[in-house]
Design a protein around this nucleic acid. Structure first.
Length: 199
DNA sequence: GGAGCGATGTCCT
DNA sequence: GGACATCGCTCCG
């Protein structure tokens, strides 16, 4: 089996809605203590900058969101609701804010480790592993202190994205989840019919 | 299976 | 002090 190429920086140097749609079908890979955890990206959301009130970047650059204003292809990990982490990738050239939130994966490799990290006794219901932004971070052992600001275009950073040639087929555009502002914009993208989409 | 709701830390005003 | 890009539990049908 040919080794899948890692998505390079150039992949992320585009507006977040474009990057979001092109991330669908790619494989998120986390190397954790020698174990390879992997899942296919099936649901994402795009967040712009100053013209998007729902974006963390809308208020301008702060200590928390500065990764979104930096160069593309870096992880923006934040803590929400007192107990969950969410993973984004920065987009657009340095100086332009924008990011893509990863909302759901179809688990491919390392399911038993994912279940353990999620506090589940088994992999009987794989939807409970990585369907949802907080769940996928927990399943892959992604935390802010370790991962915020790391380069996801390097396979040495322990978190990167690969292209295994999978073609996602039909993509649907939906309203974003869990936001109050700009909730009418269809900036959530999913592989149509995939059972791991969080909805 | 779906609506309702509580838990809980961090950031910005 | 309030809002928050969530999750899992309860209760009800």
């Amino acid at each position: 089996m040919a080794k899948s190429p890692v998505l390079p920086r150039a992949f992320y140097v585009h507006p977040p809605d474009r990057v979001a749609q092109r991330l669908l079908g790619k494989v998120l890979v986390r190397r954790l203590e020698g174990v390879r955890l992997a899942g296919r990206i099936v649901e994402v959301e795009a967040y712009f900058g100053f013209d998007d009130p729902a974006s963390h970047a809308f208020v301008g650059k702060t200590l928390r969101n500065e990764v979104l204003f930096g160069p593309p292809g870096f992880a923006y990990v934040y803590f929400i609701y007192g107990m969950h982490f969410c993973l984004n990738f920065s987009c657009e050239p340095a100086g332009w804010p924008g990011g893509v939130l990863l909302r759901a994966l179809e688990p491919l490799e390392g399911l038993r480790t994912m279940a353990r990290l999620r506090g589940l006794a088994s992999t009987a219901n794989p939807r409970l592993l990585t369907s949802g932004p907080g769940r996928l971070c927990q399943a892959l052992g992604i935390e802010r202190e370790m991962h915020n600001g790391i380069d996801v275009t390097s396979s040495r950073s322990g978190l990167h994205v690969e292209d295994d040639g999978f073609a996602p087929g039909e993509i649907e555009a939906l309203p974003r989840v869990g936001i109050r502002k700009a909730a009418d914009r269809a900036l959530r993208f999913a592989i149509a019919g995939n059972r791991f989409v969080s909805g």
